[in-house]
C-alpha cells in the first residue's frame, strides 16, 4: 500500500464524510476549543465526565479530513471509558502520531489503527493530534484554548 493510501484509508475517508458524535453535548461539563491557526482547523470538543467516567462526548467544527476523522474516531473510542483509560490512550496515540513507537498492536487499537499512517506525514501530525490534545486538556481539567501551533 502506498503512503497516501495508508494515510487516506477507507476508515479515515468514512469518518471524514460521516463523522460520529458530530454534535454538541448540552449536558457537558467540559467544552474545549481546539484550533490550528495556521491551517484553519477549528473544533469544539464536548465532554460529560461523571465519577471518573466519560458519559458523553461530541465535537463540532471544521478542518481537514485527517483532523475531522481523528476527532470522530477519538470520540468513538473514549465514550463510556474511564478518564484514566482516555489519558493512557492519549499518551499511546501521541507516540503513534509522532512515530515514536514501534510496537503498534493493531488488534488492540481497532479502528484507531487507521490513524497510524499519519506518522509518515510530519506536516500532518498536528492535524491528527489536535482533538487529542483538547481531550487531554479537558481530562487535566483545563478549559483553556488548545492550539497545536
Amino acid at each position: 500500500m502506498s503512503n497516501l493510501n495508508e494515510l487516506y484509508q477507507q476508515v479515515i475517508l468514512d469518518h471524514n464524510k460521516n463523522p460520529r458524535h458530530f454534535h454538541k453535548i448540552d449536558s457537558c461539563n467540559h467544552e474545549i476549543d481546539a484550533r490550528n491557526p495556521l491551517c484553519g482547523d477549528q473544533f469544539k470538543i464536548y465532554l460529560q465526565i461523571q465519577d471518573g467516567l466519560i458519559k458523553n462526548v461530541g465535537f463540532e467544527g471544521s478542518g481537514c479530513a485527517i483532523s475531522k476523522a481523528s476527532a470522530s474516531l477519538m470520540c468513538s473510542s473514549v465514550l463510556d471509558k474511564t478518564v484514566d483509560y482516555a489519558k493512557d490512550l492519549f499518551e499511546k496515540m501521541h507516540l503513534i502520531f509522532t512515530g515514536k513507537t514501534h510496537s503498534i498492536n493493531e488488534e488492540e487499537l481497532g479502528s484507531l489503527f487507521a490513524l497510524s499512517g499519519v506518522a509518515e506525514f510530519p506536516s500532518r501530525v498536528k492535524c491528527a493530534s489536535l482533538s487529542w490534545h483538547a481531550l487531554n486538556g479537558a481530562l487535566k481539567n483545563s478549559n483553556e484554548l488548545i492550539s497545536t501551533e
Binding site: 494515510l7 487516506y8 491551517c39 478542518g63 481537514c64 479530513a65 506536516s123 500532518r124 492535524c127
Partner: peptide, 13 residues
C-alpha cells in the same frame, strides 16, 4: 469539499 490541506498532501505525493 476536500480540505485544502488534504489536496496539498495528495499533490505533494
Amino acid at each position: 469539499d476536500i480540505h485544502a490541506h488534504d489536496v496539498g498532501t495528495i499533490l505533494d505525493q
